[in-house]
Amino acid sequence: MDFKQNYFEIFQLPVAFDVDLTTLGDRYRKAQGSVHPDKFAGASERDKRLSVQWATRINEAYGTLKSPLSRAVYLLTLSGVDMSAKANAPVDPGFLMEQMELREDLDAIEEGDDALERLDVFKRRVDEILAGLEQEFASTWQNDLDAAEQSVLKMQFITKLRDAAEHLEEKLLDY
């Protein structure tokens, strides 16, 4: 398997933060169509093994490029920045304050009858913040790695908050 190819190259896409998800999905399906284990049901063990390796790699590449956060992290990896080593990196204190307020707002939603509606409003607010951070990342990752790194750290915070909101929704809907 050609490990020199990065995930963008696998799908023959330019290395960029903006990715057209329809094109990505189309190419994902095309690529799987040529390597998926179902295409090798009668093949030798060796070819089956190659097929599983490739299909696994294509799933990994697709999964990484599909979500904006993992795509951003991957772009930083390609630029030599390892985000997994930066879990405790300092973040702008103003942003942290804002974070804590958002957390408190989320905790307060659980009480009251119109919890689901208020949760919807909250999620939209969070999505807007996230969209802003993605913009920030898109305009900085090629020329200001420090700023791009900050955007990703913030995106990670906000995404965790988004997950917590989803979790609360599941609880309210009694899943």
Binding site: M1, D2, I10, Q12, D26, R27, A31, V35, D47, S51
Partner: peptide, 18 residues
Amino acid sequence: FAARRMDDSVRSALAGHS
């Protein structure tokens, strides 16, 4: 040879697409 053919088949599947 098998590995090269597999790499090649992914490339050509997408090349046609482009």
